[in-house]
Computed example of a mutant assay.
Amino acid sequence: MLATMLMMVKLSGEHGVALPETMFWRQFVPALTLLGWLAARGELHRVKTARPRLHAQRALIGTSAMFLTLGVVQLMPLAEATVLSFTAPIFAVILSVALLGEKVGRWRLGAVLLGLAGVIAIAGPDSDNLSPLGLAVGLGAAFGVALVSIQVRQMARTEEPICVVFWFSTAGAAMLSLLLPFYVSSHDAYEWALIGGIGLTGLLGQLLLTAALRYGNVSSVIVMDYSQIGWATLWGWLIFGQLPPDALWIGGPLIVAAGLIIARREQVLHRRPPIDPQSAPNAD
């Protein structure tokens, strides 16, 4: 769903739809769809929340990350943009140290260095067609996604997926509506179809991702996320006639390997029983 959404975002950009307007409809369509569906079922109580401040923070961070995530596909081919998004687990490790004070062992530290080597390979001297701005935006998007993933994981412990998605979409649409007078334009039927498709695939992808973070562990979700590269490569070839350059086949596997190592280590650490410092003073 997310790879298909990004493909349509790239298409809408090529047809002259401004990114702020695309983002507004990306948020407005899910908010309206969820509101109508819940009202028809008499289940509006499912979006009631006791944590409005946290939802507001999520909307602010998430909308900023979305601007970068959607913007990078208009600056770079789909495959390259998707591979850069896989650096999010690497940033998550760095953030866990900076924000949570977690200790990182040699496996995860090595994974971070491996992922950085992958980024350097993709951005190397052989990548003449790679936009420096696109590279910066792609890495910024991954950093934002890492922040959002930590936040959504915390929210999903007490909030239903549909509640998290509804308030993110509603608050995001409200913020983006302030930009509409400067960017809105008329569209033909094809462009409206793209806009509607972006909203619907974004809604489905977000619901599935939020549910995955609620019912599965983060490491499993991260591993499944790598299926995006297959879809991105397929859409890039079928729709835009673009195939990944040689540098991507070198750097991409390094980034994916780094993410898999981080996911595996997270899984091992969560399974490991806590150590009693009194019975095992030399456990460190």
Rank of each mutant, 00 (worst) to 15 (best):
M8N: 11
Q27L: 00
F28I: 08
F28N: 08
V29Q: 02
V29E: 05
G36H: 08
L38I: 03
A39C: 04
A39V: 09
A40L: 07
E43R: 11
H45K: 13
R46A: 11
V47C: 01
K48H: 09
P52S: 14
A56Y: 12
G62T: 01
M66E: 02
T69I: 13
T69H: 04
L70D: 09
P77L: 06
L78Q: 06
A79S: 10
A81H: 00
F86N: 05
A88C: 10
P89Q: 06
F91L: 11
I94A: 05
S96W: 05
V97F: 08
V97K: 10
V97E: 05
A98T: 14
V104A: 09
G105E: 08
W107T: 13
W107I: 09
G110V: 14
G110S: 13
G110P: 05
V112I: 12
V112H: 01
L114Y: 02
D126G: 13
S131E: 00
L135R: 00
L139Y: 00
G144Y: 03
V145D: 04
I150M: 10
R153W: 08
R157M: 07
E159S: 02
E159Q: 10
E159V: 11
E160R: 15
I162V: 15
V164P: 12
V165F: 02
T170R: 02
A171R: 10
M175P: 13
Y183L: 07
S185V: 09
A193V: 09
L208G: 10
L209K: 05
A211W: 11
N217T: 10
V218A: 07
D225H: 13
Y226M: 03
Y226Q: 12
G230T: 03
W231F: 12
W231A: 04
W235S: 11
W237Q: 06
L243H: 15
L243D: 07
A247V: 07
I255Q: 15
L260K: 07
D276F: 02
D284K: 06
